[in-house]
Nucleic acid binder design. Structure first.
Lengths: 154, 154
DNA sequence: ATCATTGCAAAAGCTTTGCATAAGA
DNA sequence: TCTTATGCAAAGCTTTTGCAATGAT
């Protein structure tokens, strides 16, 4: 269920390189490594997890470079900054992924993703009604997952 | 279009007092002042803005007390913690307000709220499909508002 | 009278920034 | 060569916490 092939990675890297070029920025090994680490994660992560991932790969990249690169990857359209938790910003790769919604269990923190054409259409219609031109959207639904509904919380 | 009467405020205060009692916590003037400051704001705010609001009213309440009280008001069901921005957590009062979605302009930061029965129903249906029991939800749609669509953002 | 709450100041996180060094183009 | 990128360490933020004093029940 990965849905992302090797040439998909190449594509994302090309998109990023083109973005950098267009902005007069340089395509460096550090930036390439950070992008690759981002694309390797299918889940939600924070800046420090990315730092540790790179370390585990034997790549020495400073936290500062990560924090400086994340906004660029976002602007390139390859990364989303999603909900923050406990003061840390959380991210998710958006390359090769369609828009989706999150169903979050408040007890076990499990996150289920789902897509809905109907909801997308509904959002578009509502935005049009208000004259908005949509760029992105985020739907978060909180509750208790099937496994946690039996257990009382408190 | 305020939709909140004086007795509405009383009600929220009663809800909070009952919540505190049930938890073995005490109803104090400081907590009452913080709740009142929360209910006075119709928009989105962070902890420090609440601190400044209270100061302007001549009420001396420490930031620490605000940070300690916010989670209580959330647990009492009177406050929502919404999207974070620049490392600060943003909140919005939920007392007397129905669920609504946010349309955010990425250029001028304007926020438009809208309600949608259809979207609520859709969310419920999707959650049911995944066996979730819904507690809360948050829909954020990003884009450019009518006024900002002309201006290029570079 | 007890025990929770408050304020202060210090600490703790995450994130940003200044600056000297390294390295693309 | 000239300018950007990087790493380090320090600074900046918001938020949390320890502790003595205050206050609610």
């Amino acid at each position: 269920m990965s849905g992302r092939a090797a040439n998909g990675l190449d594509s994302a890297e090309r998109i990023f390189r083109l973005f950098l070029r267009k902005r007069g920025l340089r395509a460096t090994p550090v930036r390439a490594a950070i992008l690759q680490a981002i694309l390797s994660r299918q889940d939600h992560f924070d800046a420090d997890e990315l730092f540790l991932d790179l370390r585990r790969q034997g790549l020495s990249v400073s936290r500062a470079s990560i924090y400086r690169t994340l906004p660029l990857v976002i602007e390139a359209g390859l990364l989303n900054q999603i909900y923050s938790e406990d003061g840390r910003s959380l991210y998710e790769s958006s390359y090769g992924r369609e828009h989706h919604c999150h169903l979050r269990c408040l007890n076990c923190r499990r996150v289920i993703e789902f897509k809905s054409e109907e909801m997308d259409r509904l959002e578009r219609e509502l935005a049009r009604r208000h004259g908005f031109k949509i760029t992105a959207h985020q739907v978060e639904v909180y509750g208790l997952c099937p496994d946690c509904q039996g257990k009382s919380r408190d």
